[in-house]
Design a protein around this nucleic acid. Structure first.
Length: 485
RNA sequence: CGGGGCGUGGCUCAGUCCGGUAGAGCGCUGCGUUCGGGACGCAGAGGUCCCCGGUUCAAAUCCGGGCGCCCCGACCA
């Protein structure tokens, strides 16, 4: 019996665990370019499932996909003051092309507001042209100093929604609606509970009036900003001259939103459900929901076992993403470990004994070590597997919700206690904030924790905090504090 | 961008201090035996020792300069 080098345990070194999982599960690889990663087929399959679900939700809310260029002129980025200030330090700039120095440098998009609105401005004449509801699936580049696979890479894949509306209220509603879409996706597909709310001004998107976000709690008790939705007001409309004519004939600037989620979500998925055995995928986002492992000794057995496996696969195909592991050079046990490490939610074993009894063996990735094998008649298995996957999906979500609840604290008022908590276990802390940026800054300096969001009402405590965690002055808001990725 | 660690077959690493024929385990290929929780035997393939320069009869090893990766921090999705 040989074993690979044991995986680092989450409790030993969470970061090491994370990077090992990414490689060992076949999600991503490093590339020759610093900070840029290669998304491997298995990792990309997860992204495709995410894309497909999100794309459906975007279209169901009236959005259309389009594609805008990778490059924008430097001057376009410069037109919105806060925007350029926020993004200029992070951009990659093309100064030479075609063997010559360019007259005007081209910026590789860090986000696309500055390329989209100058163009779409021409598509909008009257109030009848509104709202404009666009989305694009694209890559963007932000020159990050420290990168980690999926969580922060120099180039990353994302979706960015960009909309224009006739009124401030409509834009605000849109920003809120898409935050809700993100939340639905994160909870229903990723089985990752999130807290929604508004960012404080210091964490706001560069150029936005208001930024809303979904914040999730990872297994190491650090927060992950999983998606953001911005109410841009008329800042970009003014910068890029996006005007329309009202019913009354007046010319007015449109009201914009933008919203995005990225391949970072894959990092969130890993750190929400993964364990010391490896990756663990919620069925709705698992490239293979069920892997069939055939077991045989003799050639005759091999033939009959494969026939049965294929018949089961064919029956399930279309209802379940199923894969038959026909590798000849691995023992069944080695395959079990492999697929567990890669996070496959459900495994089926088919061997000679099962053929005799017209049964199969089913093993759930998330079941406890003992008593995890379920023996089931063929017909029952075929009928039950989709239901089992639904149960597993619900189970991993419950587990994640419970973990978040156990690691969230409310009603904390003592700053010393807070500092101890952030130095120790971490997690979410709901506590008062006076509204002064200086307190936010001081807390960050003292503890590295920041205000993740000012939570929406449904997440707020029953007893609203009366005083600021930091200065003790009367609290203006309840804030969600945590250390973050 | 600062601090620390590390670059040697696909992977994990030994060898570097003290210069002298490039190694192990895993993986890979072939054959045989195995196969219900990480199989075993035999035979084999596979390396610009991160790069450039220097010292030397001779450099993975010493010297100079680059580059890359990982971890921690500041910046950020």
């Amino acid at each position: 019996m040989t074993k690979d080098r044991r995986l680092t345990l989450q409790s030993e070194d969470f970061s090491a665990w994370y990077t090992e999982i990414v490689q060992v599960a076949g999600l991503a690889d490093y590339s020759p370019v610093r900070g840029c990663m290669v998304i491997m087929p298995y990792g990309y399959a997860i992204w495709e499932l995410m894309q497909s679900a999100l794309d459906g939700l975007f279209k169901a809310t009236g959005h259309q996909n389009a594609y805008f260029p990778l490059f924008l002129p430097q001057s376009a980025l410069d037109r919105e003051a806060e925007h350029v200030e926020g993004f200029a330090p992070q951009t990659a700039v093309v100064t030479h092309a075609g063997g010559e120095e360019l007259e005007e440098p081209l910026v590789v998009r860090p986000t696309s507001e500055a390329i989209i609105w100058p163009v779409v401005a021409n598509w909008i004449q009257s109030y009848r042209d509104l709202p404009v509801l666009l989305n694009q699936w694209a890559n963007v580049v932000r020159w990050e100093l420290r990168t980690r696979p999926f969580l922060r890479t120099t180039e990353f894949l994302w979706q960015e929604g960009h909309t224009a509306h006739a009124t401030a209220e409509e834009a605000r509603e849109e920003a809120r609606r898409m935050l809700g879409v993100y939340r639905e996706f994160m909870e229903e597909w990723m089985a990752m509970p999130v807290v929604t709310g508004e960012k404080t001004s210091s964490e706001r998107f560069a150029g936005a009036e208001r930024t809303f976000a979904c914040e999730a709690l990872m297994k190491d008790n650090k927060a992950l900003q999983a998606g953001t939705s911005h109410d841009l007001g008329q800042n970009f409309a003014r910068a890029f001259e996006v005007q329309y004519q009202t019913e009354e004939g007046r010319h007015e600037y449109v009201w914009n939103t933008s919203w995005g989620v990225s391949t970072r979500l894959i990092g969130g998925l890993i750190m929400t459900h993964g364990d010391d055995q490896g990756l663990s995928l919620p069925p709705r986002l698992a490239p293979y929901q069920l892997v069939i492992v055939p077991i045989w000794k003799s050639d005759e057995q091999r033939q009959s076992v494969f026939e049965k496996a294929e018949a089961l696969r064919a029956d399930l195909a279309g209802r379940v993403r199923v894969h038959v592991d026909d590798r000849e050079n691995m023992t069944p046990g080695a395959k079990y470990f492999d697929w567990e490490r890669r996070g496959v939610p459900l495994r089926m074993e088919v061997g000679p004994r099962d053929i005799e009894k017209s049964q199969v063996v089913l093993v759930s990735r998330t079941a406890s070590a003992e008593d995890r094998k379920r023996f089931m008649g063929d017909a029952e298995a075929l009928a039950t597997i989709p239901k089992m996957l639904i149960d597993i999906q619900a189970g991993v979500r419950r587990t994640a919700e419970q973990r978040r609840a156990e690691n969230s604290v409310r009603g904390l008022t003592d700053y010393g206690e807070f500092k101890a908590r952030m130095a120790g276990p971490g997690g979410f802390v709901y506590a008062g904030w006076c509204g002064d940026e200086r307190c936010e800054q001081k807390v960050k300096e003292d503890t590295k924790a920041t205000i993740r969001v000012l939570p929406d009402s449904e997440f707020r405590s029953e007893e609203q905090p009366e005083s600021c965690l930091c200065c003790g002055e009367p609290a203006e808001h309840e804030a969600l504090w945590a250390k973050a990725y």
